[in-house]
Structures are given as structure tokens and as C-alpha cells.
């Protein structure tokens, strides 16, 4: 066995200039890649959302394949016409994507008021979307199309509820941003949070279009 390196020797290794370490300057460098205070964080949050989208996509992909298989297997599939209110909710959600874009622009131009206003608009539109979804369910119940009475119904409820749950998460994120914008100062993760929330919100939009298409064309 070669001589064991003593603690002090290792310490010297770490302290010395050749040890591969730089001591972090007190300010100015974010300690990660030196590319400005927030750029790294924005990139990281957005990367997180992108990766999260992967997981969510697999969840809905599983439901989709279950739906395709379940429909193909048995003779008990009874298609029904979608409640018209879904088109209203779709419109609302599309508009909300523009709202969050607007919020993002306000933030980039450092207008805190505008950011707050448009985040609120987005949240309200999101809630309106959910209200429309509930109205849709009410209509189906009124037509006697219950959750368990037919697999076509079951998948409708599961897909819309699954999307709604993810949208609630989006509204929670917007609520967080709204709460933080109430104080006038910027906060350290502001850019990252808004950029990530916007990205996620657009994803929910695309996801909804996909689900709507699935419900419309795969009956």
C-alpha cells in the first residue's frame, strides 16, 4: 500500500492554487457559470419545466394508449357529442396564453405593475377555463353521460380532470408570482419563475388542444 495521504497534505492540495479550486468572490459571480445573475437560474427553471413536460407527456401518453386499446377491444364503446362549452374553454385558454406572454414582456421591461396585472388576467382566464370544464361535466351529467356508465365517458372525465389538475398547478404558480409581486422590489427568482410559469402555461395549452383533438377524432 502506498503511503496514505495525510489530512494536512490534502488540505494543502485544496488550498493551493493548483488544487483546482477558486474561492468564490463575495459578489458579482453567481458561482455557477459567471454569465450574469439570473441567466443561469432562468435556464435552470426552464430546463426543469421542459423535463417535467416529459413526465407529464408520458402520463397522458399512457392514458391515450389505454384509450385506444380499450376502445379497440370491446363492443361497448358509445361515442357521444362533446359539450359545446369546450370550444369556449378552448378559446379562453388560448387567450390566456397571450396574456401570460404579455406578462412576460412586462417583466422583461421591468414593469412590475404590468407583470402583476397580466399574471392576474392569466389566472382569471385559467379559472374561467376550469369553470367551463365544470359546466361541460354538468352538461354531460344532465344528458345522463356519467363517469362509469361507459368507457368513452370514463376517458373523457379522466383526461379532462387530469388536464384540469395540471392547470390548477399552473394557477398555483401564478398565485405565487402574484403574491411576490405585491411588494415593489424584484425578487431573486422572479425572471426564472415567470419564464418557467409561462413555458408551463403554453404547454398546458398545447396539451389541451391535443386532448380536445383526441376526444373529437378518436371516438
Amino acid at each position: 500500500m502506498p503511503a496514505t495521504l495525510t489530512a494536512t497534505e490534502t488540505e494543502a492540495q485544496l488550498e493551493g492554487g493548483d488544487g483546482g479550486f477558486v474561492t468564490l468572490p463575495p459578489t458579482g459571480d453567481d458561482g455557477w457559470d459567471g454569465s450574469g445573475p439570473d441567466a443561469g437560474l432562468v435556464q435552470r427553471y426552464k430546463l426543469g419545466v421542459w423535463i417535467g413536460m416529459g413526465g407529464i407527456t408520458m402520463f397522458f401518453a399512457a392514458l391515450t394508449s389505454a384509450m385506444v386499446v380499450r376502445q379497440g377491444l370491446s363492443g361497448d364503446w358509445q361515442p357521444f357529442s362533446l359539450p359545446p362549452v369546450l370550444y369556449v374553454s378552448t378559446l379562453v385558454l388560448l387567450v390566456s396564453s397571450f396574456a401570460i406572454e404579455r406578462a412576460r414582456r412586462e417583466m422583461r421591461q421591468a414593469r412590475q405593475d404590468g407583470l402583476q396585472r397580466w399574471v392576474n388576467v392569466t389566472s382569471v382566464l385559467g379559472l374561467a377555463f376550469l369553470a367551463c370544464q365544470v359546466i361541460g361535466w354538468q352538461e354531460l351529467v344532465g344528458r345522463g353521460i356519467y363517469l362509469a356508465s361507459n368507457p368513452a365517458n370514463s376517458f373523457y372525465y379522466v383526461l379532462t380532470a387530469g388536464h384540469g389538475a395540471h392547470l390548477l398547478g399552473g394557477i398555483a404558480a401564478l398565485g405565487y408570482i402574484w403574491a411576490r409581486t405585491r411588494s415593489a422590489r424584484a425578487w431573486p427568482t422572479r425572471e426564472a419563475a415567470v419564464e418557467a410559469a409561462a413555458l408551463y402555461w403554453h404547454f398546458l395549452d398545447v396539451l389541451w388542444i391535443y386532448i380536445l383533438g383526441l376526444l373529437l377524432f378518436w371516438r
Binding site: P37, R185, T189
Partner: peptide
């Protein structure tokens, strides 16, 4: 610079 200080802190 306030942001940076706080950011490092949070980080």
C-alpha cells in the same frame, strides 16, 4: 446588486 446578494443567499 441587491438581487445578486440575495440570489447568492437563496442559492
Amino acid at each position: 446588486s441587491e438581487e445578486v446578494a440575495e440570489y447568492t443567499e437563496v442559492h
